[in-house]
Computed example of a mutant assay.
Amino acid sequence: MRVSVVQMNQGSDKAANLAQARRLVEAAVAADRPGLVSLPETWTNLGGGRDARMAAAEVLPPRGSGEEGGEAYELMRGLARAHGIHVHGGSIIEAGGDKLFNTTVVFDPDGREVARYRKIHLFDITGPDGTGYRESALYGAGEELATFEAGGTTFGLTICYDMRFAEQYTALRRMGAEAIFVPSNFTLQTGKDHWEALLRARAIEAQCWIVAAASWGQYEERGGLRSVYGHSLVADPWGHVVAKCSDGVGWATARLDHAVTARVRRDMPVLEHRDARRIRL
């Protein structure tokens, strides 16, 4: 299966973000003919404060209901149907009562929702420059792992900060994952030192393809500008980066090769060795 990771420079204008996503997905499909396209984390909103995030939030229809969703939900569903592809929705802001959720939804080529995942690990840190990030002030944490099948491949779902918790990737591997998504808004300061190193490590440890669409550029927050790193990439189960975006908006495409996965897992059966030592993660 060919997969494309879309790199966006979204802001607080939801309509503009939707238009940008549509344009980039359609360009990637026309140029590279992928079977699956992946968007970044919270591609419907980045910045603008609490009010902008609340305005961008959507109530998701019950799983399997076929009911109509919000603007972003229906855009992804429509793109999947129009192009006959799977659309991995990075993540959007889900309205969930007292808290919002940072939520992935995935659509098959018929426009059916086939997976949903709420981000488990919330980004409550202080950056190297002293900037504080408190995702838990607005968002609730998810509680369940999720996988889905597309094109003969089982995909696992994670979001951004999840990548720092290797046990989540081991758990997804145990659930049958052969490739794992990591849509992100990775800060520039942490990204330049940790982004590729962490993604390659997760690929090597889990022996899975890593599919990481990311946001790039600057956005406004609390009267100032913040920067996100970009460098969307696909890494193979040996940890090689096989496709990567440079600076700017765009996309990168790679083919997920089952033979590579099978060879890596056969020659270095780390999951079996971990079981033999009775380590439970």
Score class of each variant (00 low, 15 high):
V6A: 08
E58I: 05
A80D: 03
G47C: 12
R77K: 14
P40T: 04
A31G: 08
Q20V: 08
R50C: 01
T44I: 11
Y73E: 07
Q7L: 15
E71N: 09
L75P: 10
G78P: 02
L79C: 08
P34I: 04
M76F: 12
D13P: 07
S12I: 06
A56I: 06
A55E: 13
N17A: 10
E41F: 02
E68W: 10
E74A: 09
P40S: 09
G70W: 04
A56E: 00
G70S: 09
S12F: 07
R23S: 15
P62V: 03
G78R: 05
T44N: 13
D51Y: 00
E68I: 13
K14A: 04
G47T: 11
A55P: 05
L79D: 00
A72C: 11
V25G: 00
W43I: 09
P34R: 08
V29K: 01
L75A: 08
L39M: 12
G35I: 05
V29I: 08
L79R: 02
A57Y: 00
G64C: 14
L46P: 00
E74W: 02
G35L: 02
A27Y: 01
R50L: 06
Y73D: 06
D51E: 15
M76T: 06
R63T: 04
T42Q: 00
G66T: 01
A57V: 10
A30I: 10
A28Q: 06
G64K: 11
W43F: 14
D32E: 15
A19V: 07
M8S: 05
R33H: 15
Q7K: 14
K14E: 10
M54A: 14
S65R: 06
G69K: 07
P61M: 05
A72V: 07
G69H: 07
P34N: 08
G48H: 13
V6Y: 00
E67N: 13
G64V: 10
G48Y: 12
P61E: 01
A27E: 15
L75M: 12
A82K: 15
V37Q: 00
V59R: 11
G66K: 08
R22L: 12
G64N: 12
G35F: 10
G49D: 14
A15R: 10
G47Q: 12
